[in-house]
Design a protein around this nucleic acid. Structure first.
Lengths: 229, 229
DNA sequence: TTGCCAACATACCCGGTAGTATGCAATCGT
DNA sequence: ACGATTGCATACTACCGGGTATGTTGGCAA
């Protein structure tokens, strides 16, 4: 079986397109929910399997280790949100304020929609700063950190551009982006879709948090120009 | 030893005054740093002991279980920051904006000073939302959540008062407080005192984040009235 | 039909860790 | 001076959970 180390299934790029609803995808979803519920270290592979009504065999059939599984979940989360924000930024015009507003809302919407994945992504990011003991862990989490940095730079650049245009008052784009994202990521920790929650409820949540974040940057509260779009 | 279940050492109120620098305190500090570095689930009691150059015996002499130890750390963190913010709020005048500014800065300063404890506090809060399996865990974390809520209510009330006075633009004080605190707690995840960092550096950090947060509330950027105090 | 392989389930191993039981030196009250 | 208690260290146990090795079943190709 391990005759050639490259033969077996890897979860490299095949995960990137994603969300096909197939069995591989079901494992990822179950893992995201379980890791979200119990945390990476506290959740067992059996827990993940049980969440699907399956056993370890199914999990290890698609992923070579617990960390690999987790990394796949984190990667999925980071790629989803990066795609969402990038798309929103492209759709918005060149105006820095409107562009930033669109990015902020897209980030929030993405979080509310795929909260388990994004929660795991945050967990994964924190694991890096802390103690990634083994060298393979370092490697596995390393490129995930790169993805996170890429996403953060999206906001850094937008802030810096706005600051050059005098739209924002930020002196340190990096610190501003960090603080902005910290505020935007808040719902990851406490949001739970309540029973009978409407789309409008979520939209209101997004608008309130987005308003806070955009004001925080020093932007003038533009009269909800692109609203309802 | 367990003849009477109440004789032995409990870590109830005795911890509250705290920070005496004694051996009990040293255990708490080591625990805070270890849990911060590895996370609650991933950190072992031996890790905590090793961080002190001691063994498990010393830890279990002061705390009855891993969760008890962790709860003590979380409690310490929550009590510290609550005391700091309360004191700052009292020192500031009755003006809602100035009061909120003082609270915000106090919260940030507290985080930079005692980051390990506050990081554990955040961890502990998240553990509650997730899976506190056993009933004693529920109980242990329950009152910690109460402490967290008390601290959050400090900000909620200040926001609500400011909103009544028309100082802030917040429609939902609870959501505003949550988002505000999320932004303020940002440094808990990434801050590390760099070598050769001066007091002024930290002050600048505090001011930038505080400015973001206060603007987020819709407050006018008051010309740093109580600065250097 | 047969053979092969994907897609799992089952059974098992084994290292790490929470918790305990015990030993033991120093200190303290009397 | 001397038990008793404090303040740990050491040794050990029980168990959980990651990982693996080995079935077993269904579908698909030839």
């Amino acid at each position: 079986m391990d005759a050639s180390p490259e033969t077996a299934l890897q979860d490299r790029a095949p995960d990137a397109p994603a969300a096909d609803g197939g069995p591989r995808d079901e494992v990822l979803v179950a893992a995201a929910e379980t890791f979200t519920a119990k945390g990476f270290a506290a959740a067992s592979i059996d827990d993940v399997a049980r969440a699907m009504g399956a056993t370890k065999g199914r999990v290890y059939h698609y992923h070579r280790s617990k960390l690999d599984l987790f990394a796949a979940v984190v990667r999925r989360g980071l790629e989803i949100i990066h795609a969402d924000v990038t798309r929103a930024a492209a759709a918005a015009g060149a105006d820095p304020a409107a562009r930033m507003a669109a990015m902020t809302r897209a980030h929030l919407v993405s979080i509310l929609r795929d909260r388990p994945f994004h929660r795991c992504a945050l967990q994964g990011v924190e694991m890096h700063l802390t103690a990634a003991t083994t060298p393979d862990q370092r490697a596995a989490l390393g490129d995930l950190i790169a993805l996170r940095d890429r996403h953060q730079r999206l906001f850094e650049d937008a802030i810096a551009e706005g600051a050059r245009g005098g739209v924002f008052g930020a002196t340190d784009p990096r610190l501003a982006a960090r603080t902005l994202l910290a505020a935007l990521n808040g719902p990851v920790h406490w949001y739970r879709p309540r029973a009978g929650e409407t789309e409008a409820d979520r939209a209101r949540l997004v608008e309130e948090i987005a308003a806070f974040a955009l004001r925080g940057l020093g932007a003038q509260a533009e009269p909800t120009k692109g609203r309802k779009a």
